[in-house]
Protein backbone atom coordinates (compact mmCIF):
# COMPACT_ATOMS: atom_id res chain seq x y z
CA UNK A 1 0.00 0.00 0.00
CA UNK A 2 1.61 3.25 -1.08
CA UNK A 3 2.00 5.59 1.86
CA UNK A 4 2.47 8.72 -0.28
CA UNK A 5 -1.08 8.65 -1.65
CA UNK A 6 -3.93 10.28 0.21
CA UNK A 7 -6.12 7.84 2.11
CA UNK A 8 -9.02 10.30 1.90
CA UNK A 9 -11.38 11.81 -0.63
CA UNK A 10 -12.09 15.37 0.44
CA UNK A 11 -14.83 17.69 -0.83
CA UNK A 12 -15.90 21.09 0.37
CA UNK A 13 -19.59 21.94 0.38
CA UNK A 14 -20.34 25.44 1.64
CA UNK A 15 -18.43 25.67 4.90
CA UNK A 16 -18.48 21.92 5.50
CA UNK A 17 -15.55 19.66 4.70
CA UNK A 18 -16.72 16.20 3.62
CA UNK A 19 -14.30 13.32 4.01
CA UNK A 20 -14.58 9.76 2.70
CA UNK A 21 -12.08 6.97 3.20
CA UNK A 22 -10.31 5.37 0.27
CA UNK A 23 -9.74 2.13 2.21
CA UNK A 24 -12.39 -0.43 3.02
CA UNK A 25 -10.43 -1.58 6.05
CA UNK A 26 -9.25 0.96 8.61
CA UNK A 27 -7.31 -1.41 10.75
CA UNK A 28 -3.58 -1.12 10.77
CA UNK A 29 -1.52 1.43 12.59
CA UNK A 30 0.23 2.93 9.53
CA UNK A 31 -2.97 3.67 7.63
CA UNK A 32 -4.70 5.04 10.69
CA UNK A 33 -1.78 7.31 11.49
CA UNK A 34 -1.84 8.68 7.94
CA UNK A 35 -5.62 9.16 7.98
CA UNK A 36 -5.42 10.92 11.34
CA UNK A 37 -2.62 13.21 10.18
CA UNK A 38 -4.51 14.13 7.00
CA UNK A 39 -7.74 14.95 8.85
CA UNK A 40 -5.94 16.88 11.58
CA UNK A 41 -4.30 19.00 8.87
CA UNK A 42 -7.77 19.76 7.44
CA UNK A 43 -8.94 20.83 10.90
CA UNK A 44 -5.88 23.03 11.35
CA UNK A 45 -6.80 24.94 8.20
CA UNK A 46 -10.11 26.20 9.66
CA UNK A 47 -11.07 28.42 12.57
CA UNK A 48 -14.33 26.64 13.45
CA UNK A 49 -14.13 23.41 11.46
CA UNK A 50 -17.27 21.70 10.29
CA UNK A 51 -16.30 18.18 9.33
CA UNK A 52 -18.44 15.36 8.00
CA UNK A 53 -16.82 11.92 7.89
CA UNK A 54 -18.57 9.33 5.73
CA UNK A 55 -17.97 5.64 6.37
CA UNK A 56 -19.77 4.62 3.17
CA UNK A 57 -16.83 2.58 1.87
CA UNK A 58 -15.69 1.16 5.19
CA UNK A 59 -16.13 -2.52 6.03
CA UNK A 60 -13.80 -2.88 9.02
CA UNK A 61 -12.30 -0.60 11.62
CA UNK A 62 -10.28 -1.23 14.74
CA UNK A 63 -9.98 0.32 18.18
CA UNK A 64 -6.98 2.27 16.87
CA UNK A 65 -9.29 3.95 14.34
CA UNK A 66 -11.74 4.76 17.11
CA UNK A 67 -8.89 6.35 19.05
CA UNK A 68 -8.05 8.55 16.09
CA UNK A 69 -11.69 9.60 15.75
CA UNK A 70 -11.68 10.60 19.42
CA UNK A 71 -8.53 12.68 18.90
CA UNK A 72 -10.18 14.35 15.88
CA UNK A 73 -13.34 15.05 17.89
CA UNK A 74 -11.33 16.56 20.74
CA UNK A 75 -9.41 18.83 18.39
CA UNK A 76 -12.58 19.98 16.61
CA UNK A 77 -14.28 20.77 19.91
CA UNK A 78 -11.21 22.70 21.06
CA UNK A 79 -11.67 24.89 17.98
CA UNK A 80 -15.40 25.27 18.66
CA UNK A 81 -16.16 23.22 15.55
CA UNK A 82 -18.59 20.44 14.72
CA UNK A 83 -18.05 16.81 13.71
CA UNK A 84 -20.64 14.51 12.16
CA UNK A 85 -20.27 10.84 11.24
CA UNK A 86 -22.50 9.23 8.63
CA UNK A 87 -23.22 6.21 6.39
CA UNK A 88 -21.95 3.70 8.93
CA UNK A 89 -22.51 0.04 8.06
CA UNK A 90 -24.64 -1.72 10.74
CA UNK A 91 -21.78 -4.05 11.70
CA UNK A 92 -19.49 -1.09 12.27
CA UNK A 93 -22.18 0.87 14.05
CA UNK A 94 -22.33 -2.04 16.50
CA UNK A 95 -18.67 -1.33 17.35
CA UNK A 96 -19.67 2.23 18.25
CA UNK A 97 -22.50 0.89 20.41
CA UNK A 98 -20.30 -1.68 22.20
CA UNK A 99 -17.75 1.03 23.01
CA UNK A 100 -20.56 3.53 23.80
CA UNK A 101 -18.93 5.95 21.39
CA UNK A 102 -22.33 6.38 19.73
CA UNK A 103 -22.96 8.62 22.76
CA UNK A 104 -19.83 10.69 22.18
CA UNK A 105 -20.19 11.24 18.42
CA UNK A 106 -23.06 12.75 16.48
CA UNK A 107 -23.90 9.93 14.07
CA UNK A 108 -26.42 10.25 11.23
CA UNK A 109 -27.79 7.62 8.89
CA UNK A 110 -27.32 9.64 5.72
CA UNK A 111 -25.10 12.41 4.44
CA UNK A 112 -28.14 14.62 3.84
CA UNK A 113 -29.23 14.29 7.47
CA UNK A 114 -25.71 14.96 8.67
CA UNK A 115 -25.34 18.03 6.44
CA UNK A 116 -28.68 19.39 7.68
CA UNK A 117 -27.59 18.98 11.31
CA UNK A 118 -24.71 21.48 11.14
CA UNK A 119 -25.49 24.70 13.00
Amino acid sequence: MASGESRLRVKTEGNVTRVEFVDRNILDEGNIQQIGDEILRLIDEQDHPKLLISFANVEHLSSAALGTLITINTKIRAKDGQLRLTDIDPQIYEVFVITKLNKLFQIHETTDEAMASFK
Binding site: S63, L66, L101, L104
Partner: peptide
Protein backbone atom coordinates in the same frame (compact mmCIF):
# COMPACT_ATOMS: atom_id res chain seq x y z
CA UNK B 1 -12.98 7.25 30.11
CA UNK B 2 -15.13 7.75 27.02
CA UNK B 3 -12.82 10.36 25.53
CA UNK B 4 -9.62 8.43 26.13
CA UNK B 5 -8.22 7.50 22.72
CA UNK B 6 -7.05 4.02 23.77
CA UNK B 7 -8.06 1.02 25.85
CA UNK B 8 -10.86 -0.50 23.74
CA UNK B 9 -9.12 -3.49 22.18
CA UNK B 10 -9.82 -5.93 24.99
CA UNK B 11 -13.43 -4.75 25.22
CA UNK B 12 -13.94 -5.50 21.51
Amino acid sequence: NLERPCGRGLLL
